[in-house]
């Protein structure tokens, strides 16, 4: 009997959350996410960098839209990519309460974590791809990370052409042939280069001598371009182990269409 009641209570908690609990959760989310001084002030009052939110006469639809999608042209971001659904609905209820709108008991979304900044939410990726994404963008490696030259799944810098075919394994990734990397000589300085455009007035290319690559625009006369180079993909990904590279390939398989 007792066990039966406990199960019922648990089931109920997945569907509804008392209004007071939602407001408390909403205030907690607000304090940690919104009331950071540089943005809004605690309780939506004055003294923050962003406008006051309390007693502004906002209706719930406006609060919902602004919180979820952000305000274009202002520093107010779209929190749908930052907060999970439960946190979002709680903080919306809290800001509504600051505008005199009573909170109703509502669905308590369990919610997976949001996706962080840019790109599809991590929750949509399989676990092995999430690990690969972290390796792809790994700041600890400094410039020796994939994201220095590649954009995939909304993260990284698109120096190289968009990834369209994915090597089968780490060995294939290391052995990747790069015949499109040429050798450019400008004013006596030769460098491995990715050509972007070559016209009469100017030549635009990425100098791959060091990471990060440098986009050069040269108006110098007598630029020499020859096919082939000594540049090797294996050298710039040397900080990754085979296991790590295989994990990165899982991420690419999940996001490259």
């Amino acid at each position: 009997m007792n066990r039966f009641l406990a199960c019922l209570a648990m089931a109920a908690s997945l569907e509804a959350q008392p209004a007071a609990d939602r407001l408390k959760q909403g205030e907690d989310v607000f304090n940690k996410t919104c009331a950071t001084g540089y943005c809004h002030a605690p309780k939506g009052g004055p003294g923050g960098g962003a406008p006051r939110l309390a007693a502004r006469g906002f209706d719930e639809a406006y609060i919902n839209a602004t919180t979820t999608r952000g305000l274009p042209g202002t520093p107010m971001p779209a929190f749908s990519t930052v907060l999970n659904r439960g946190e979002l609905s709680a903080v919306i209820a809290y800001v509504a309460s600051l505008n005199g709108i009573a909170a109703a008991a509502g669905p308590a979304f369990g919610g997976a974590p949001g996706g962080g900044r840019g790109g599809p939410p991590q929750a949509m990726l399989p676990p092995e791809a999430i690990a690969g994404r972290e390796l792809f963008t790994d700041s600890v490696r400094g410039f020796a990370r994939c994201a220095t030259c590649h954009e995939a799944g909304g993260v990284g810098i698109s120096v190289a052409s968009p990834i369209s075919t994915i090597p089968a394994d780490a060995a294939a990734l290391r052995a990747l042939a790069t015949p499109h990397v040429q050798t450019v000589t400008v004013e006596g300085d030769s460098m491995p280069a990715l050509m972007l455009s070559q016209g009469k007035q100017r030549t635009v290319f990425y100098d791959l001598t060091t990471v990060p690559p440098v986009r050069r625009t040269s108006e110098a006369a007598g630029i020499k371009v020859v096919d082939g180079s000594g540049w090797k993909h294996s050298a710039v990904i040397a900080s990754y182990s085979d296991t790590e590279l295989n994990s990165i390939l899982q991420f690419l398989k999940a996001v490259v269409k």
Binding site: N31, K32, T33, A35, T36, G37, Y38, C39, A41, P42, G45, P46, G47, G48, V82, G116, R117, S139
Partner: peptide
Amino acid sequence: TANRQEPREGSFYSGGSWAL
């Protein structure tokens, strides 16, 4: 007021709320 916060790279991480 100080608040403990989980770091998420590239997201705000002030660990507190305040008003001027």
